[in-house]
């Protein structure tokens, strides 16, 4: 009897872990953009949704093989990210002096412009595709639901795919940041935009690259999670967006490893919470974590004294 409970509990943790990975996938791009621009990109959840819809369209029209599907969605995410940057962020970077760079008003204006874009995009998608859940064609959705048993535990192939995607994205991002020229520029702009432009860093191009990378990853996350859950809908980006935001704040606002870790903790905590409370209370966990972090660790759990992004 006790054994059964144990394995059930572990199974819950496994599920919580994979939910946490979902949040982590979203949080990676979110935190990258925050780290560089020091602004919250409220449209990141919509990039995630666009990724899912782009994937659905590709499946319906072309029925491409998996690799092609991933690349198509990656490209759609990159394009959407660049468009988003041009529309919502670029107009507020006209002023290059230090006062504007540090100005709260400038930051808050991109907060609102990205929110505005997110609403426009979400409503447009709703207008075109309808507000209802769209089912992913079986051939693709089923591939994510293959049961795989690990001893007494059961996981779906989709969970493995999400784990793999999270590992690959995290590793790719670290590689880009630490090993490539563009990564070096991204880190420099994150640390000091003014100093960076005077040593020859093309700040504009660096910001675009940041959006392209963050949004490409966001779109792929949307596709995978949409496939795994079997349905997509225009507002699907909201809930993971909120969780990713909480993970980012907990992780110290500009620490990608911190955000990933906190996203996983969040997923686990939600799974454990549903053990003791009803399912409906799971969302409360994120908000409680957020409040606790802000009260007791205002710089986040991993925030102080480390490199941005």
């Amino acid at each position: 009897m006790f054994d059964r409970f144990d394995i059930f509990f572990v199974q819950q943790l496994v599920n919580g872990f994979s939910v946490g990975l979902v949040y982590a996938l979203v949080a990676i791009g979110f935190t990258l953009i925050f780290g560089v621009l020091n602004v919250v990109n409220f449209a990141h959840g919509e990039i995630y949704m666009i990724g899912a819809y782009a994937g659905l369209l590709a499946i319906l029209v072309l029925a491409p093989p998996w690799v092609a599907l991933l690349l198509l969605v990656l490209a759609a995410g990159i394009a959407a990210g660049i468009a988003l940057e041009r529309a919502a962020f670029k107009p507020f970077r006209r002023f290059r002096d230090e006062a504007s760079l540090k100005s709260k008003a400038m930051r808050e204006s991109t907060l609102l412009s990205s929110l505005a874009i997110s609403i426009v995009v979400r409503e447009s998608v709703e207008k075109i595709f309808g507000a209802d859940m769209q089912a992913i064609p079986r051939a693709y959705a089923d591939a994510m639901q293959e049961p795989i048993s690990l001893g007494e535990l059961a996981v779906a192939s989709g969970q493995i795919a999400i784990l793999a995607a999270a590992v690959v994205m995290f590793a790719t991002l670290q590689w880009i940041l630490k090993r490539t020229d563009i990564g070096l520029s991204i880190r420099a702009v994150a640390a000091n935009p003014l100093g960076a432009q005077y040593v020859g860093v093309h700040v504009d191009r660096t910001v675009i690259a940041t959006f392209a990378i963050g949004s490409g990853m966001g779109a792929v996350a949307g596709l995978l999670i949409g496939l795994y859950q079997g349905t997509i809908f225009p507002a699907m980006g909201f809930a993971p967006g909120v969780k990713a935001f909480v993970a980012m704040v907990m992780g110290g606002l500009n620490s990608i490893p911190g955000a990933v870790l906190c996203a996983i903790v969040l997923g686990l905590a939600e799974a454990v919470a549903t053990e003791f409370f009803g399912q409906g209370w799971a969302d409360l966990v994120a908000y409680v974590f957020l409040v606790l972090t802000l009260v007791f660790f205002p710089t986040g759990l991993f925030g102080a004294g480390r490199e941005r992004v």
Binding site: T180, D181, L184, S185, A188, V199, G200, H202
Partner: peptide, 13 residues
Amino acid sequence: VSVGAVGRLGIGP
């Protein structure tokens, strides 16, 4: 210092 050395011409990922 690398940022300065890289700045002049970038090579993509």
